[in-house]
Design a binder for these strands. Structure first.
Lengths: 239, 239
DNA sequence: CCCTCTAGGATTGTCGACAATTTGCGTCCC
DNA sequence: GGGACGCAAATTGTCGACAATCCTAGAGGG
């Protein structure tokens, strides 16, 4: 009303997030970073005490993570952090490839390519910083943020929603197999080239680079499998 | 032990599904078929009475549907069935296009093409039956089952997981705009051609047909928008 | 010595009640 | 008559306790 737009830009309700959402986010981070290793059992009573809330909101948060696929629930047994088998690595990257290809297409065709490219370059800068400081964790985080930004730039609610779990799972892969990395310069450069292709509006190059990016990763993380030729992993834990 | 495999093939725990899961499925069906129209407010107390359970399990089911994107939650206000705007129709089909393209690729390259094609043909038979009986609801259901089967055949846990919500939302679109249908023969034939391309292992044709299938649908449901040229909808309700 | 059955402990599933917050309506003042 | 304030009803958010179920360890019998 009396407040001109632009003033007080960031006032929001004191508690705009539900308790369950806060807990879910904290657990998500813990799982993502490896603080809660795969296979860990999460006791409701114990966690409720740690978060100082009742079991009600905590259960809701857990249920949320279960439906996201980060926890697996065994009835009357408990909740466990999922453990990723080789087949899952393949599956994750195949799904990511599909999502990010679509996001890239929408970014390419939806206009505003330069603005998106600028956004992506910020995350690449973060990667470079993390690389120069020799911080593998931060490097992985920045890497993921690149892909998160790409998908956000697509402007598709559903691509964003579907990618959320995938990126967390990707982070789990990266933390679990932190040793098998490629050269950091190479890792940064792949993303830079991707941005350039986007900026140029070169669809074929962008899509090819993206596919190669995924193929590289999956072969490094799960040797012997391939995205492009449909070579299924040895023990697919699929339904 | 003493039971040779193959005997008693279908005995399972008396209640292998949690109460919340049962409720969630029932609500899902109700939303999908339009029994709960978009925008409806769902009171916890009322529903708890209808299902004859406490509010605890019911809340879990609701939370599940919220995280799936079928309900939207306003704090201290209530839960509402999402209503699909034109921008959402575009978004849904863009996402479906990405998922099903990937599923088709894995079906094409993963071997067992004939087995998958046979499975898909069963659902096309269902479509034909529904068409001959002039049952639009059953026709839509069979249509969705075709795509569900295709994604299941991909063998990818994550594609299946991501597609679940998308297919429900698609069903909502179909029930909401049930009038704007194409000729039923055409609708059946499109799927038949898709199966043939899959059986032949003709990747280019299969992918092209699939893309056209989606493009047709989106243009019929949300005229003026297009998947392929990135023509964004007039009022994108995206984040 | 090994298998089976039973009792114990622990964990999840469910419930009913209380507290916090929002919305709508009625009232009061200008 | 119009607007703002305050109250009350309804709904969601949270909590603690009880019930059902499952794993484990130990004793007993073969």
């Amino acid at each position: 009303m009396a407040l001109p737009p632009g003033m007080l830009p960031e006032i929001e309700p004191v508690s705009r997030e539900s308790t369950a959402a806060v807990i879910a986010r904290q657990l998500r981070d813990a799982i993502m970073t490896g603080a809660l290793p795969p296979g860990t059992q999460l006791g409701e009573t114990e966690l409720a005490a740690r978060f100082q809330v009742s079991r009600g909101p905590l259960r809701e948060a857990m249920q949320h993570l279960v439906s996201e696929g980060l926890l697996r629930s065994e009835r009357h047994r408990g909740l466990f952090v999922i453990d990723l088998e080789p087949g899952d690595v393949y599956d994750i990257y195949a799904a990511r490839s599909a999502i990010e290809r679509a996001a890239m297409l929408r970014a390419l065709r939806g206009g505003d390519r330069d603005r998106i490219a600028d956004l992506l370059e910020q995350t690449v800068d973060e990667m470079a910083t993390a690389a120069s400081e020799d911080d593998p964790g931060a490097l992985s985080t920045a890497d993921l943020r690149f892909h998160e930004a790409l998908i956000n730039a697509s402007g598709s609610k559903r691509l964003v929603r579907m990618a959320r779990t995938l990126l967390i799972e990707t982070r789990m892969c990266l933390t679990a197999l932190q040793s098998t990395y490629q050269r950091v310069e190479e890792r940064v450069e792949e993303h830079t080239k991707l941005i350039q292709a986007l900026r140029d509006g070169d669809e074929e190059t962008a899509l090819t680079l993206l596919e190669a990016h995924m193929e590289d990763a999956v072969q490094r993380l799960a040797p012997g499998t391939s995205l492009t030729d449909g070579h299924a992993p040895p023990v697919p834990g699929n339904a």
